[in-house]
Amino acid sequence: MTRGAFFDRRAFLISYDPTQDPSGAILERHLVTNGAVGAGISLEYYFSSADNDRYGSGSKVTHNVTGLFAVMDGTASDLRTGLPSQMIEIHEAMRLLIVVEQSLDVLTAIYERQPAVRELVGNAWVQLVAKDPESGAIHRFRPGLGWVRWDPPARPVPRAERSQPCYAGRRDPCPPALIAAPDERAAHA
């Protein structure tokens, strides 16, 4: 599914084969554990970079470990939450997007069964997208609306021979791209 895609360090890939898991039991475990962990990490980065002064903990250079469980700034301040500014430098503030290859029915069933998933997806803390294993149609879960079909925009995704030219010389996040697979490259040559 992600073959040939360049996500510039944004992706967190988990192997999963929908044909082996018709009931969705494996997926359910993945969503409950990895989904929650991913959401936690993503949200921590999200809030720390969206407003580092309030939700993050500022620069680490003036930090002062307090009571062996937290940090504060300098000699006296509120205890700081979130991540220091040094840790969010390469991160773009965005919500976690979970893309799953599984039918809508299985996913809906899981959503209904699992309060943890409901909490995260239903309140839009993370976004859930399903790709149907058979038709390849893509649906996005919108809280309040349910599954909404998503069609790829007409604008083509940029292609590149290698990933290196996509990120070379830049510090900000790069847009995704499609990288030519080794066999294609060989065919070109």
């Binding site: 003036t62 700034d73 300098g74 301040s77």
Partner: peptide, 12 residues
């Protein structure tokens, strides 16, 4: 006064 945007730092 390195973190000069914090009044406490400059006071100190």
């Amino acid at each position: 006064g390195y973190a000069y945007e914090r009044p406490r730092a400059t006071d100190n």
